[in-house]
Design a protein around this nucleic acid. Structure first.
Length: 660
RNA sequence: CGGGGCGUAGCGCAGCCCGGUUAGCGCGCCUGCUUCGGGAGCAGGAGGUCGAGAGUUCAAAUCUCUCCGCCCCGACCA
């Protein structure tokens, strides 16, 4: 994810990773990330001989298989046609998009977007003598006046903007029927993102951005704990910079947006006024919108580094980047995306390698502990290496359709960029040498992975640790008096819960019924729902319902904070366990080509196979089956065997899968 | 960038083939009343440059051309 694959030849065998830093398996036992590994990584034996790979990249043939799967299941296009036909052919019966028995949609209740917005104090005061509460805009404002939003409640305002029902109301396609459609539907239904007027770019909506903010907050804290600092480098990169590192330019040249002018000019043609780039403002040196920042950063590092005393430099940047992709998908591949890119400079190769592995471990920790997403840490093959890297490491996750998704990468850049940008330092002995570099990144793509790891046919499912709203309280009432009592109690409980578990929202909208609210919060992935009605109030208890398994439990007011805390922990663990189980069930040790093609013609998943280490052999597999080597796990079976494709000797198993 | 599909109200769609009053329907939205423990009911109402631009025509959502966008497939990739 961090970078372009290196298009050209790979290096010879590289030192392998220290197994300490990788967790390949379900990895309940975690390697702590708390301290920087000190000392050198001694040279380690090759994980597998990574041979020089041939030139041009061979790319994601993997899509075809997904397409097949989709065709099998009845694809998008067919679905649409069916809908159209349905309208024409069947008398009066509309074609319903999913299995919703509601059909006519008669059962949809109204929702008011305004209900949760703070109302201006003026003009919303209760008017004496009026007791009309429930209906109508004005009356609704009175409700808010009766129950003013407390400062506490306001500060814990939901990241979910409660929108009108018209938005995100589309039924969600079933995963089993149309996985791609389902993915898009979930994003729409949970209001995570929307298409923008700019091709291939998305608008990240508040619900989606809240997830990104949590990702930023948690990762940023971890980076800083490990000694990194943040900085910001410019969006525009002089075109010539890209050309400095041969592999790098080859990797990125095809998808750069280029700034050529600095001024627009109004022109009127056939009575229409429009704007064009002013020919007189053409730039002498054109700029490239960064596809990644290695070049600008290393140009600066040259100025900042003279002696070993200036090292290491451990800088991270939170930024947007742009890669002109042919085909885009929300979060997974957009023309512009947000990410974090770390760029470090070191005095020794060993230190750089240690940093690379340390950050890989950070990503592993983050994916597994925070996102409840099990990942395989490993080394990329030469074919899949970042353009300009000596070695690329990745974390790979399995999505619910069995395909792999690279969720974070960490690169050992060796001295490639130091040489390209002439960054040298003098060591303690007075010797001048190029510095050693790393870079590592995680992007908004991880949100796509998060969606595809946990969500279900009802909508988004979020692990509590990354969810912006941990729980939502739905008060239930029949009349004004009950409403007052129930809402007051809900506010009190919410205040306690906020202290215990963080953001909690009280959904006091009075224009929709509880059932509607349940469905809405489920779509939006809030991990826990707490129902509180008059009967509960009488018994001093609530009903607590988990989003992911709908487990329902009555909890007394006194035990609530504790119960919610432990229930959120249970949810977090369940989601992780569920994902681990799914991965295990869809991971197969495969030793014959027949079994290999059988797996990927059929259900798909991960295949642990022997591989000879030859890049051409890897490409041949890809061309035949659309399956690629995801990585060479840091912890893996190193029993010798025969390559699953060509039969040549192999010194260990690697992970094959179709990928996003 | 090649192949296919689709752009009509916030969402989902009909109308287009065969050009002709004020462009319809469901949901949502607004107003009122009744409702409220799993997606409420009735009544009234608002909302449209028919993706954009040219062209043909007395007349274009409808026919022609160009462009833009979205979706699927291929190529490419985080």
């Amino acid at each position: 994810m961090f970078g372009r694959r290196r298009p050209g030849a790979g290096g010879a065998s590289r030192p392998a990773a220290d197994a300490r830093y990788g967790r390949a398996g379900a990895g309940r036992a975690r390697a702590p990330v708390l301290s920087r590994p000190h000392g050198r990584q001694s040279g380690l034996p090759g994980v597998v001989g990574l041979r020089p790979a041939g030139g041009g990249a061979l790319r994601g043939l993997c899509r075809g298989a997904a397409a097949d799967a989709q065709r099998r299941a009845g694809g998008h296009v067919r679905r649409r046609r069916a809908r159209r036909r349905g309208h024409r052919g069947r008398t009066g019966q509309r074609t319903v998009r999913t299995g919703d028995a509601g059909g006519s949609g008669a059962g949809r209740a109204p929702v008011d977007a305004d209900a949760l917005r703070p109302h201006p104090p003026g003009g919303s005061g209760p008017s004496a003598g009026s007791h009309r509460i429930r209906a109508g805009g004005l009356a609704r404002r009175r409700v808010h006046a009766i129950f003013p939003r407390s400062p506490g409640a306001a500060s814990a305002a939901p990241p979910f903007r409660v929108s009108g029902k018209g938005i995100g109301m589309a039924d969600i396609a079933k995963r089993s029927v149309d996985y791609n459609r389902w993915y898009q539907d979930v994003i729409q239904a949970a209001e995570l993102a929307d298409n923008s007027p700019v091709r291939g770019c998305m608008v990240i909506r508040p619900n989606g951005y809240a997830i990104w903010e949590n990702i930023q907050r948690i990762l940023d804290a971890k980076f800083k704990e490990l000694g990194h600092v943040n900085a910001y480098f410019p969006l525009l990169i002089p075109k010539s910079f890209l050309a400095r590192e041969a592999q790098h330019v080859e990797g990125f040249a095809k998808e750069c947006a280029i700034v050529t002018h600095h001024r627009l000019k109004q022109v009127t043609e056939n009575g229409k006024t429009t704007v064009i780039p002013d020919p007189e403002s053409k730039l002498e040196e054109e700029y490239v919108i960064r596809p990644t920042s290695e070049t600008v950063i290393w140009d600066m590092y040259r100025k900042w580094i003279q002696s070993y005393r200036d090292l290491p430099i451990l800088i991270n940047q939170w930024a947007n980047v742009m890669r002109w992709e042919m085909r885009t998908r929300m979060f997974l591949r957009t023309t512009e995306f947000l990410w974090q890119e770390g760029h470090t400079a070191h005095a020794t190769a060993a230190e750089a390698r240690a940093e690379t592995l340390q950050m890989l471990e950070v990503y592993r920790w983050f994916a597994e502990e925070i996102l409840a997403m099990p990942v395989i840490t490993g080394v990329k093959t030469a074919n899949e290496r970042f353009a300009g890297a000596v070695e690329t490491f990745s974390i790979e996750a399995m999505m619910q359709d069995g395909k792999a998704l690279q969720a974070g990468t960490s690169h050992d850049l060796g001295q490639n960029f130091a040489k390209a940008f002439d960054v040298k330092f003098q060591d303690a002995a007075g010797k001048v040498e190029h510095v050693w570099a790393t870079s590592w990144g995680m992007s908004t793509r991880i949100i796509g992975a998060l969606i595809m790891t946990h969500s279900d046919d009802e909508g988004l499912v979020l692990p509590p640790r990354i969810a912006a709203t941990k729980a939502v309280i739905v008060p239930i009432w029949k009349n004004e008096e009950e409403m007052a009592q129930v809402c007051a109690a809900a506010d009190g409980l919410a205040a306690q819960l906020r202290v215990a578990v963080g953001p909690v929202h009280v959904d006091r909208r009075d224009n929709m019924r509880p059932g509607w609210k349940y469905a809405e919060w489920e779509r939006k992935g809030v991990p826990l729902r707490i129902e509180l009605g008059p009967r509960d109030l009488a018994g001093q208890q609530v009903m607590m319902v988990a989003r992911h398994d709908r487990k329902k439990e009555a909890v007394g007011f006194q035990q609530l904070a504790e119960a919610v805390t432990s229930e959120l922990a249970r949810i977090q663990q369940d989601l992780f366990d569920r994902a681990v189980t799914r991965r295990r069930e869809n991971t197969h040790v495969i030793d014959s080509w027949e079994a290999f093609t059988g797996l990927f013609d059929g259900p798909g998943g991960f295949a642990e196979c022997h591989w000879c280490g030859d890049g051409d052999c890897e490409k041949a597999v890809q061309e035949k089956t659309k399956v690629t080597i995801r990585n060479l796990p840091l912890v893996r079976d190193e029993t010798p065997g025969a390559c699953v494709h060509c039969g040549k000797p192999s010194i260990g198993r690697v992970v094959f899968a179709q990928s996003y």
